[in-house]
Write a protein that binds this DNA or RNA. Structure first.
Lengths: 172, 172
DNA sequence: GATATTTGATATGGTCCATAACAATTATCA
DNA sequence: TGATAATTGTTATGGACCATATCAAATATC
C-alpha cells in the first residue's frame, strides 16, 4: 500500500540512444506491478488517496477536509447531539475531536452549547454560516466530486461500488 | 471520513426500562448517517480501514504490514531494482523508505547490494528467508484475506470491485 | 451521601507523510 | 580534462493523524 500524494516520478531512464555501459543493465524501463494490482488493500488505498486528493481540490475554496465535511453533515442531520455521540459515530476519538471542533467553532461553522439536561456535555449545532457553507460544500461535492465517478464508471456501477464498499465497511 | 480503528462504541444508551429524566431528552437512540453513507470518500475510507485491520490480523504470525507486503511483492517481481525505483512505484518517498528497508533487512527478509554499475545505488533483492516468508504471506492473504471478499461479494463482484478501484486509482 | 461513571479536555507518544539538506557518486559539457 | 550539475541513499525535522492515560466537573448508582 503506502501510496503518498507526491509520488509518480515515472522513472523514465529514457534509454538514451547513446552510451551503453556493460551489459547486465538491460531493464530500467518500467516496473511490473504483478500481483499487487490485484491486491484489495493496495488498490483500495490508492483509490482512497486519489479520492481524498480530489476532494480537497474541489473544496479548496471552502477549506474543508473530508473529516470536517463529515462532521458538518452529521451535525446537520443530527442537531442537538453532544461531542461524544458525533465523534464516536464517525470513529473519531473524543480527545482528537476537541481540536477539530475548536477549528470549526473558531470559523463560526458550528457551536458548542452547554446542555441544560446534562451540564457536562456540549450540544453541537451548525451556525447559520455553517449551514450556508455546508450547502455550498454539498453542491461542490455533487457537481465536481461525485459527478466524476459517474463520468468514470457510469451511474449503475457507481451505485454498485458504493454499495460494495459500504458492505465491506460494515461486514468485513 | 476519519474512521479510527477502535471506534464503534455503538452508543447503546439502552433505553433502560426504568428512570426517565424530564422530557426533552427524547433521542439518544442512534444517529442518522444520512448522506454520509453515500459519500464516496467516507465509505472508501471506512472500507480501507476495515481491510487493513483484517490484513494485519491475517498477517499477525508473519508480522507483515500491508506496506511491507507490497514491498516484498514488488521486489520479488522486479529483482535488481534500486531503492528509488521500488519506493517511487509504491508512492513511498525515498527518505521514508530507508527505515522501512532497515526493518526488512534487519529481519533478513531482503538485502541491499551495492550496484557495480552505479555505486551510489542499492540493488534490492529478497533473501531466501524473504522468499519463504513472502510465499507464506501470499497463502495467508489468499486464503484468509482475499477469500473473505468472495464470501462477502461473490467472485464476479469481487473482480468488478477491484477493477473499479484500480480505475479510480489510475484515472480519477 | 460515598463511590463509580460520564463528558469534555489536556498531555503525550506513535506512526505516517513531506521537505530540506548532505556526502558520495555519477552525468554533463565547456 | 575538469568544473558544474544531477542522482542516490541518508539524516534531520516538522506536520497530520491516531491512540492512551489522566484530570476536573458533573452526573449516576447504590
Amino acid at each position: 500500500m503506502t501510496v503518498s500524494k507526491t509520488a509518480e516520478k515515472s522513472s523514465e531512464k529514457a534509454a538514451d540512444a547513446k552510451g551503453r555501459k556493460d551489459a547486465g543493465d538491460v531493464h530500467a524501463e518500467a516496473l511490473q506491478l504483478g500481483e499487487l494490482s490485484e491486491q484489495l488493500g493496495y488498490v483500495l488505498k490508492r483509490a482512497q488517496l486519489k479520492v481524498f486528493e480530489n476532494f480537497l481540490r474541489c473544496m479548496a475554496s471552502l477549506q474543508l477536509t473530508p473529516a470536517q465535511f463529515s462532521v458538518l453533515l452529521l451535525v446537520e442531520k443530527n442537531p442537538g447531539r453532544n461531542q461524544t455521540e458525533i465523534a464516536s459515530t464517525l470513529g473519531i476519538l473524543r480527545p482528537n475531536f476537541v481540536a477539530m471542533l475548536d477549528n470549526l467553532e473558531s470559523r463560526d461553522l458550528c457551536a458548542r452549547i452547554r446542555s441544560t439536561n446534562d451540564r457536562r456535555s456540549h450540544i453541537l449545532v451548525l451556525t447559520d454560516k455553517g449551514k450556508a457553507v455546508l450547502a455550498r460544500a454539498k453542491k461542490l461535492v455533487a457537481t465536481k466530486h461525485e459527478a466524476r465517478l459517474n463520468d468514470l464508471l457510469g451511474q449503475a456501477n457507481r451505485e454498485a461500488l458504493i454499495g460494495m464498499l459500504a458492505k465491506i465497511a460494515n461486514e468485513f
